[in-house]
């Protein structure tokens, strides 16, 4: 069955390369996106919530769930965030990984959530205009999860990498906030030359993280 899926946001750039994938229109690259920080829409990446009394018994995609709430684990393009005693979120950031989520403890949340990435220089100068969450907490090891209001919207945020004011941050919230959230981030990032970025920009940032 052909199914048309729509991202909750349309970033204000001119796509240079895009492709159709599983019903989503995925922008791979925008015109003139080199240099400066990027705001990247990853809402098409599949996402699940996992909930169970004994959550440690699950090994989604062959990975173990982090032990403590607030910890995240990134392997082979799969990010697992421990949210609480009984809950974890799983975000598939790479298309090369097979699905493995048939157990009823998994709930797919892909089409209900907005997932954005901020990557590049000065992104933490942008975020500090929008939230009081402490992304530069030196006691936390990347990747780590923080819950809290971002631009007054309850969000899950994951710091994938951090080097002073630069790095990669993921941000997820209900899709209904998408338009206002991207508007707020792009306005806050204007002085830092924040631009819409395609999925290839995020893949490049992930490669840097993997070393």
């Amino acid at each position: 069955m052909n199914c048309e899926r729509r991202s909750p946001v349309t970033l204000p750039g001119r796509p240079a390369r895009s492709e159709k994938r599983d019903g989503w229109n995925v922008v791979l690259e925008y015109e003139g996106e080199s240099g400066g920080p990027l705001l990247i829409d990853l809402s098409h990446g599949r996402k699940w919530d996992l909930q169970d009394v004994d959550i440690a018994r699950f090994k989604p995609f062959g990975m173990s769930i982090p032990d403590d709430p607030g910890q995240s684990r990134l392997e082979n393009g799969i990010l697992i965030n421990r949210m609480g005693r009984t809950q974890a979120s799983i975000w598939r950031l790479s298309e090369q990984v097979p699905d493995d989520t048939a157990d009823p403890a998994f709930t797919e949340t892909t089409e209900g959530q907005l997932l954005l990435a901020l990557a590049g220089p000065n992104i933490f100068s942008i975020t500090e205009k929008l939230t009081s969450l402490e992304f530069d907490d030196s006691s936390k090891v990347t990747p780590f999860l923080l819950f809290g209001p971002f631009s007054h919207v309850p969000c899950q945020t994951v710091v994938l990498s951090r080097s002073k004011r630069d790095g990669v941050l993921l941000l997820a919230c209900s899709r209904g906030y998408g338009r206002d959230m991207t508007h707020a981030i792009l306005e806050a990032g204007r002085e830092f030359r924040l631009k819409p970025g395609g999925e290839n920009g995020f893949a490049a940032a992930m490669k840097e993280i993997a070393g």
């Binding site: 709430p69 949210m83 609480g84 819950f147 809290g148 209001p149 309850p154």
Partner: peptide, 8 residues
């Protein structure tokens, strides 16, 4: 209830 955060 941590409504804007973890939901606990």
């Amino acid at each position: 209830f941590h409504k804007d955060g973890c939901g606990a």
